[in-house]
C-alpha cells in the first residue's frame, strides 16, 4: 500500500525490486574499493540506504522496515561500535589511536585486510542507519 494512493505505481514498485539487489551489490563494491579509489563507507552507505528509501517510496515505510529487518537505529549503534573498534585495535596493538593495522592477509576480490577497512565498514552501517532513520521519519505521517 502506497502512502499516496494517487502516486501508487506498479512500474516503480517492480523496478525497485529489480534495482534493490543491484544497488546493494554496488554499495558493497564502492565500500570495498574505497581505500585507494573513489568510493568508501560513506558513499557506499548512501547507495545502500537509497535502495531501502526507494522501497519506502514505491511501496511503504512498513515494507521497507520489514525488508531491512533490523531497526535503523540499531544499525547505527552497531556501526558506531565497529568503527570505534578499528581505532581501539590500533591502540591495543601497541600503536596510536586509529593507527592502521595490516595483518598482511590478501583476499582475491576484497584486497588487503586492515583496520581502515573495518572503520569504513563501521561508517557504512552508521550512514545506512542514520539515513534510513531520517528517511523513515520524513515519510511517516504524524499520528
Amino acid at each position: 500500500m502506497a502512502r499516496w494512493p494517487e502516486m501508487e505505481s506498479v512500474i516503480l514498485s517492480r523496478a525497485t525490486r529489480l534495482m534493490m539487489p543491484v544497488l546493494i551489490v554496488f554499495s558493497v563494491f564502492l565500500l570495498l574499493r574505497g581505500h585507494n579509489a573513489p568510493g568508501g563507507g560513506f558513499v557506499g552507505g548512501l547507495i545502500a540506504s537509497t535502495a531501502f528509501a526507494l522501497l519506502a517510496i514505491s511501496d511503504s515505510v512498513d515494507v521497507a522496515r520489514q525488508t531491512l529487518r533490523i531497526e535503523p537505529r540499531r544499525v547505527m549503534g552497531f556501526g558506531l561500535l565497529v568503527a570505534l573498534s578499528a581505532g581501539l585495535i590500533g591502540l591495543l596493538s601497541g600503536g596510536s589511536f586509529f593507527e592502521g593495522v595490516w595483518p598482511g592477509i590478501k583476499l582475491p576480490v576484497i584486497g588487503k585486510l586492515g583496520t581502515p577497512m573495518l572503520f569504513d565498514i563501521g561508517v557504512f552501517f552508521v550512514v545506512v542507519g542514520f539515513t534510513l532513520t531520517v528517511v523513515f521519519t520524513l515519510l511517516t505521517e504524524e499520528d
Partner: peptide, 21 residues
Amino acid sequence: IVIGFGLQAFTLALAKSVYDR
C-alpha cells in the same frame, strides 16, 4: 560535506514536523 548532509537532513525533518504541527 558529510556533516552538512547530516545537518540538512535534520533541518528538513524539523521543518516537516513544524509544518505538521
